[in-house]
Each structure stands twice: as C-alpha cells, then as structure tokens.
Simulated scan of single mutants.
Amino acid sequence: MKSKYPEVQGGGSLLLAWQVRNKHILVIGGGEVAAGRILNVLNADAKVTVICPSEGLNDEVAHRVSSSQITHIPRPFLPSDLNNDVDMVLCAVDDPIASTQVYKLCKEKRIPANIADVPPECDFYFGSVHRDGPLQIMISTNGNGPKLANIVRRQIAGGLPENIGDAVRKVGLLRRKLRKVAPEQGESPKRMGWMSKVCEQWSLEDLCEMKDEDMEALLGYYKPGTVPSLNQLRLGQEPGVFEFDGSFGWYIG
C-alpha cells in the first residue's frame, strides 16, 4: 500500500536562511572566490574579518578593506585565529593541505566551515542566489555543479515579475501591522489564514500599488475574516457585491 506521506529523498542538504547578522565571520584568503563569499555575508549584515597577506588581496577585497566594510589582518592564517569568538569560517585559498588543516581545526572547535571547491570539507554550501529586495531564491546542486546552479537560477529569475520584490516588501509591512492589530498568540492561525487569503486574492500589481492608507483600511476586514479587492477597498464596498468594471457588464468581486 502506498504511503500517504511524502517519500524520503536522501542525499540532499537542509536549505536554510541562516541569520548571521552581527555574527563574526572569518574569511581566509583574499582572491576572487573570497570576494564572492565576503559579499554574500556582508549582504546578510555579518561582521567580517579577512586574513590574507596584503599582496594576496584582489581589487574588490582591497576596496572593502579601504572603505572599512571589513577588518583585514595582513598575514597568513594561524590556528590561534580561531580563538577570537569566530562564528563561521570561509576558507578560500589555493592550498589543499592548508585548507584541510583549517577544516580539521574548525571541526575540533565546532565552528561551521566552508572550504571552497572541496565539498567533503564543507559543513554548508553556497548556492546561486537571485535577490530582489527582501526576496531571495537559492539554487543548490549540493556541490555537484555550481555553474549549472547559476544557469538554473537565471532561468528562474527570468520568469519572475519585475515587481515581485516590492510586492514581498508590502506583504511584510502588512504582516507587521497585523501583529499590532491582533498580537495575541492564539490569533496566530487566524492571522496566517487571513494573510494567505490576501496573497491568493490580490495580484502582484495590487500588492505593489497598496499604500499605507490601503493597509489600514484592509486591516479593518481582519476581524470578520474577509478580503476585499483593492478596488472594493478604495470604493468602500464589501467583498462579494456587484461592481461595475468599466465595460458593458458587471462582475462579482
């Protein structure tokens, strides 16, 4: 008999949105790969220290040092560098032996580490990410094909509406306002259900067009659990009434 539950598909990674805001991330190396890693974690508001001789910094990393976006220690890595409250290590040096030593030291200290281009020595992988404001979409091949992940990411991004990032931002603002209207813990299922209705019934264009006054008016429909269209909201109509659509007919909103 076929199980009613999803089949387990082993061999994957647990994809998470890892919050590293104000965490101390140590980057070993200063080349092109390190530059990409640094940008990723700076975008997540982490505090970054780069350990690399000055002559090993590429132009991008050197710019981030000179503009005080990151801290730079101009010398090779030392094991004692892991004693300074490090929350994560990103190693991007072209030295397999040194990279393996870094990974082993991190394992001993239980510090999560990523060793560039060595999947077996990674506690986590960097995927190919599409970013549009608060929206982030990551494609991972579990270390099998980073270039292919980039191709898939571009194809997915090409099919997304141009305004989807703004729509996501507006939904987030509406959610925060709703929590102030109904802050009780017991309201959580109703809040989630009502927000789902808004996302399902409003188009992305409507969500982008929604203004602060529209949000305040929309929140007034939370208690009865109804969701009017944006046009009904601005006309002060109740959901389900007949509404003139500007043509030769009427429709039910």
Results as ranks from 00 to 15, higher is better:
G158K: 06
I151R: 11
N163G: 13
Q136G: 14
A113Q: 06
P120I: 00
I151S: 07
V152E: 05
G172T: 00
K147N: 10
G165I: 01
I156N: 06
A167T: 06
H130M: 08
I151E: 08
R179E: 14
R153Q: 12
I139P: 09
E162I: 12
N144W: 10
R153H: 04
I164M: 11
V168H: 14
K177P: 05
G133W: 05
L178S: 13
K180D: 13
S140N: 12
D123S: 05
R131W: 03
V118G: 01
Q155L: 15
L178N: 07
R110N: 11
Q136T: 13
P120A: 01
L135N: 13
T141M: 03
I164T: 04
R153P: 11
R169D: 15
V129T: 14
F126D: 04
C122I: 00
D123I: 00
K177I: 02
P146S: 02
Q155D: 11
C122V: 00
I156Y: 07
V118H: 11
P112N: 06
R153L: 08
V118K: 10
G165Q: 06
L160I: 00
P161D: 04
F126V: 01
G165F: 09
I111G: 05
V171W: 07
C122W: 01
A116W: 06
T141Q: 05
F124E: 06
A157L: 05
L160K: 05
I115D: 01
Q155F: 15
S128Y: 01
G172I: 00
R176L: 12
L178D: 06
N150E: 10
N150G: 13
C122D: 02
Q155T: 14
F126W: 11
I137L: 15
I111T: 02
L148Y: 15
K180C: 13
G172V: 00
V168R: 11
A116R: 01
K147W: 09
E121C: 14
P161M: 07
R154I: 01
R176P: 08
N144K: 12
A149V: 01
L174K: 10
A113K: 04
R131V: 13
R175I: 00
V168W: 13
G159M: 09
A167G: 14
R175N: 03
I139F: 07
R176E: 14
N150S: 12
E121N: 15
I164Q: 09
A167I: 00
G172A: 01
F126Q: 03
V118D: 11
N150K: 15
K177V: 00
I156Q: 06
L174P: 09
K177M: 12
P120T: 00
S128F: 05
R154M: 10
P146A: 01
I139A: 10
L178G: 04
